[in-house]
Nucleic acid binder design. Structure first.
Lengths: 355, 355
DNA sequence: CTGAAAGCGCTAACAA
DNA sequence: TTGTTAGCGCTTTCAG
């Protein structure tokens, strides 16, 4: 027989104690199972718990000193396939360590970002993981540094994923991947295939992800002795429609490039759609590469050559670092890692003899 | 000057009170802002809060009666594009109503599912939303019914999304979409284009999603006077590789169908890859349709004809229903809705004169 | 092995 | 306008 609590309130430990004819201390002990209790008493208590449908109140428990550890994870948009992979990595690692995972998407709104950080600070999350590139300016650094300190002051830890270190002496963990190196490699791949006029597509000025990828593009060009043409760096954004629109616009002015390096696979997807509509064949007429290696990349036609980014690993590492630090298994010195990237060659690049 | 708490503990409201030379009640009032406080006192308190880097303890606050409302959301895999859309809908609606959103993916493991439900019950989440099809058998119904009652007993609410009602009188909200109707429509679309031998691809026996879609397929066939051939219902699973493998296997035995109805767009994607490898052209040699209308569907070549499912709306509705009920704005009677689906025609189906 | 009681940090009467 | 204080539900000494 399941008894409903009276007057719209959940049963408390006291109700259970009364029902079982014991003290609350005994109930608590039975529940925790970390202290000897007579078998008969235990059974009586357990029966009452069941009958009353009793559930402990996490808040009360937390207040009394037993923390239900939680990992908070913040991203721009759950629907971005690469970040979903990272979220999955966080989830997996957190679950494996018996932590609950709190995910929040902010839609890139700095206010919601702040609000969530505050909330997590209040909740005393074990770690707060922030993922995704960001405009790297002074106000950002200042506010992140402050947040890092503030989280530290309540025993939590800020983890920056795919974002740059925010300043020296700031108590934050950083897990990056090699944006510049990946961009360098794939640009080199294009150059090695004879391409000289390579359109760099998308990105946002000031975004660290953009800056890194653009830097790799530039360095590769320079190393090959190809001058960097500012007219070949165009468009903004990382989404499908950004790539689509930029290519549409560009196509109106004629095709003065033989290859396109899209900042992300999503934007490459948009570019491909635009080429498709315009009757421009990929890779026969123009070659195309992306960045991220999302699932979709292998299902496009042609299959997209791109840079693999270990997003899941990124999420996993973020959790591991923060928790190992907290448990004293590693130190501050290990709190900055850079994960590698590599080119995945598929069918979207064709050979071309340089003019 | 930011003061760090002494001895690894966060500052409490008492520390702030002392620093500002007021009582804790005054600090609480300043923080809540719901009670008059002299301007000068307020400023003093605010300064202390800042200096001490003070953050309220949610648990203590919750225990004292002020709940930080939370919406819990549980799915199998964050990386499934359709469920990511639903998660996004939940997120949006929850954020719009000032709720924090707790997301957890279970990987389909019933144990983790249970554990998360328990945890959410303990946390006193405002609502617990469960999404995704499931094997609909007696044990499942029993355990879900019990969970629904148990959540209700702590003032929470169970919401089943894309899952069937679990029994009469069970206090749960149900948001479904019309699986059967969508399957009926798209099968009809195939039939109207002259197809008679339609391979139904994937699904899991007992899964409600499979059952609904299969039922629609059957009904359409029957309405067109086409006998249902059990030999044309094949394969299991919903993922890309499931579709891929089944089609591979099937292809070895020759192509005795003119169209394929894949249970999901992901499985259609796998099927397409398999056809591609085997040199079978879609839609010239065989037509293909999917279900879900994920983003990817429009980027495949050919663009995939499929059934649109309003996943984001699904998530949104789940939150809305649960919260409106809790706030007394709607009643139990409104706690079951079925969202519509519709066919999106693209390029993966060709006309064929029936043999 | 069991119980009584002192908090945990905060809010909200109730007093002043 | 401000302070005092009684809980909120649970854990955990400290005494039986």
């Amino acid at each position: 027989m399941v008894t409903e609590p009276t007057g719209r309130r959940a049963h408390t430990i006291r109700d259970v104690a009364e029902a079982a004819g014991v003290s609350v201390a005994t109930v608590s002990r039975v529940l925790a199972g970390n202290y000897p209790v007579a078998a008969k008493t235990r059974q009586r208590v357990q029966r009452s718990v069941r009958e009353l449908n009793y559930v402990v109140n996490t808040h009360a428990r937390a207040l009394a000193g037993v923390q239900t550890e939680t990992i908070a994870f913040m991203l721009n948009d759950l629907r971005g396939p690469s970040f979903a992979d990272a979220a999955h990595g966080v989830e997996q690692e957190a679950a494996g360590r018996g932590r609950l995972c709190l995910i929040c998407s902010t839609g890139g709104d700095p206010e919601r970002e702040q609000a969530f950080l505050m909330l997590m600070r209040e909740q005393r999350a074990s770690a707060v993981i922030v993922i995704g590139g960001v405009r790297d300016d002074a106000p950002y650094r200042e506010s992140m540094a402050e947040m890092a300190r503030s989280l530290q002051s309540v025993g939590s830890r800020l983890v920056l994923c795919g974002r740059p270190l925010v300043g020296d002496g700031v108590p934050a963990t950083v897990v990056e991947y090699d944006n510049e190196g990946g961009a360098y490699s794939i640009t080199t791949h294009l150059l090695a295939n004879g391409h000289r006029r390579i359109l760099f597509l998308g990105g946002d000025e000031g975004s660290t992800t953009s800056m890194g990828r653009l830097a790799g593009y530039r360095r590769a060009l320079t190393d090959f002795g190809v001058p960097v043409d500012p007219g070949l760096i165009e468009g903004r954004g990382f989404e499908r429609r950004d790539g689509y629109e930029t290519v549409r616009r560009r196509l109106d002015r004629g095709v003065d490039f033989t290859a396109v390096f899209a900042m992300t696979d999503m934007s490459a997807t948009g570019a491909l759609a635009a080429f498709d509509e315009a009757g421009v064949r990929v890779p026969e007429d123009v070659s195309l590469v992306g960045y991220d290696d999302i699932q979709l990349a292998a299902d496009l036609r042609p299959k997209l050559t791109t840079v693999h980014v270990p997003y899941e690993e990124l999420g996993r590492t973020a959790v591991r670092l923060a928790l190992d630090l907290r448990e004293g298994r590693i130190g501050e010195a290990d709190q900055h890692v850079v994960l590698g990237t590599h080119v995945v060659v598929r069918n979207s690049v064709s050979r071309r003899s340089p003019a």
